[in-house]
Amino acid sequence: MPEQRVRTAVVPVAGRGSRMGPLTSVVPKELFPLGRLPVLHHVVAELVEAGIERVVLVTSPGKAALNTYVERVLVPAECAPAGVEVRLVRQGPVPGNGGAILTGAEHADGEPFLVVWGDEVFVGPSRAAALLECHDVTGLPCLALVEVGDDDVPRCGIAHVQGPHGPYVRVGGIVEKPAAHEVESRLASVGGVVVDAGLLAELRRTPPGPDGEVYLSAALATHAAGHPVLGCLLASTWHETGSPEGYARAFVAVARTEGLLGLPDDLSTVLTERSAPHP
């Protein structure tokens, strides 16, 4: 059992959402509707249900609409009734998702914390609960993994696994956004990770990539080379909403679970297939 349980979740929501432009110049992508609720509402509701006590939303200038929704709708509807604290904080000077995580780590009281992305949702069993259970059982950093098809490989960090570690797998490294022919694995690192002190220290040492940004995937790859990092295979279905085709598929999937489409299964399948990226 770990000495410290995970009480805090860090959710980076500072991205510009350029792939969803021009609408994202006015409406943050995290507020795009999925069924009855926007994307971010689904994410935070899952965290609250999993038992998270503090949610740190790492944002950026130009997202006043997101702040307003959080304060006026999300907190009263989901967080306050459950006694969950929500903090909206501005990302610090380090760019990239690694910088957002470093900013959020300042609000975790030196404890391990969960990172999930503000534009990804899961249909099915809770990925947050699965990651928290993995850490509760092992006390190690835990990474959410889902099996993806060839079309999704170039959009994901792909994990190289080294065999079983109890009910989990040992992650030996991550290749960021490879071509499908470059990797044998189809296990994508999506949805989140439990960050402990060792992984956080590695992230602080991680240099920027060629684009000048610091990435969690780079820190994970380095840390996994010398320390145990576990992969938790999720039973749920992953959806990213940061691209038009991903958002379209996510909307259909969530709307169907909420009974909103009123369409026969074959027509829903057609809509989903039409939203898929063309080869």
Results as ranks from 00 to 15, higher is better:
1 M>N: 00
2 P>C: 05
5 R>A: 02
8 T>M: 03
13 V>S: 14
17 G>E: 12
20 M>K: 05
24 T>W: 08
26 V>K: 07
36 R>E: 13
36 R>P: 00
37 L>D: 09
39 V>H: 07
39 V>P: 10
51 G>I: 04
51 G>S: 05
57 L>R: 13
58 V>N: 07
60 S>I: 02
63 K>F: 08
66 L>G: 05
66 L>W: 08
66 L>R: 09
67 N>D: 11
73 V>R: 14
73 V>P: 00
79 C>R: 06
92 G>H: 11
94 V>T: 15
102 L>G: 02
103 T>H: 09
104 G>T: 08
110 G>S: 12
110 G>C: 09
110 G>Y: 12
128 A>C: 14
132 L>Q: 00
137 V>E: 01
138 T>F: 02
140 L>E: 07
152 D>C: 00
159 A>V: 11
167 P>I: 02
169 V>I: 03
172 G>T: 02
178 P>F: 06
184 E>P: 03
185 S>Y: 09
188 A>M: 10
194 V>G: 01
195 V>Q: 01
195 V>C: 01
196 D>H: 13
196 D>M: 05
199 L>Q: 05
200 L>N: 13
206 T>G: 07
207 P>T: 08
207 P>E: 14
212 G>Y: 00
213 E>Q: 12
224 A>Y: 04
233 L>Q: 10
233 L>H: 12
234 L>H: 08
237 T>W: 08
237 T>R: 14
240 E>N: 14
242 G>T: 02
260 L>Y: 11
263 L>S: 03
264 P>H: 14
270 V>A: 13
271 L>K: 11
